[in-house]
């Protein structure tokens, strides 16, 4: 009996009779005359800050992470804050502020849903598009952590900011689960009016830590 796999492959084979048998897919033959980057020589940190803010994320640049994080938390006053494993301890403000939750042992979805906020690092950021990319690495935790709480505070080291999409993809490891985040969740489904916040966090704050701070001892 022929399987559907064989059927489909046979159909494809007979559909492509115009393709010479000797022809092979050649990635190098594809013209890629587009730019490697649209950052246009801009300062990538400034560009990222501006573009992320365009999505109505609140962006702060700082040389001292604990101060900026404490200020953001004082503004938003989440009742509780998930802090994933591997979040640099030296970035955390002194005790006080929201109740801190660790995902160890893993929080249930109910507990995640009940948490008010989450504080994470990221893997890469993209200047031209104002995008954060999380890869579930240290300080980020599994994907659900940055999804269910209504408030997401993300800390980016300036060195993590790639100029544009191509560079960002090269820096990422596709074997890890990747989440590209460009502003708070949004919908334009009702008369095309943009409404921030449907299922993902409705508030997104970004703190960019600039290089005069000694880089924390985590991998890039």
């Amino acid at each position: 009996m022929t399987t559907s796999r064989e059927t489909i492959l046979a159909r494809i084979g007979s559909a492509l009779t115009d393709v010479p048998k000797t022809e092979r897919y050649d990635a190098a033959a594809i013209s890629r005359d587009y730019r490697a980057s649209h950052a246009g020589g801009h300062d990538v940190t400034a560009l990222f800050a501006e573009r992320a803010a365009d999505y109505r994320a609140t962006v702060t640049r700082t040389v001292h992470a604990p101060t900026a994080i404490a200020a953001a938390l004082a503004e938003r006053v989440p009742a509780s804050l998930i802090i994933p494993d591997g979040f640099p301890a030296q970035w955390l403000p002194d005790e006080g502020g929201p109740r801190r939750l660790a995902d160890r042992p893993p929080l249930s979805v109910r507990e995640l849903d009940a948490a008010a906020g989450v504080l994470t690092t990221c893997a890469v950021a993209i200047a031209v598009t104002g995008t954060l990319v999380l890869d579930a690495g240290p300080g980020q935790g599994r994907r659900a952590l940055s999804l269910l709480p209504d408030y997401h505070l993300c800390v980016v080291r300036a060195a993590q900011i790639a100029e544009d999409v191509p560079e960002a993809l090269r820096r990422l490891n596709p074997r890890r689960p990747l989440t590209f985040i460009s502003g708070p969740s949004a919908t334009s489904d009702i008369e095309l009016e943009r409404v921030e916040g449907v299922h993902g966090p409705r508030t997104l704050d970004i703190v960019i830590v600039e290089p005069t701070t000694p880089a924390p001892g985590e991998a890039a």
Binding site: I126, V128, G130, P177, L178, T179, F180, I181
Partner: peptide
């Protein structure tokens, strides 16, 4: 410039 979320 980019949609809010892309999952891979």
């Amino acid at each position: 410039r980019m949609n809010p979320y892309t999952s891979m």
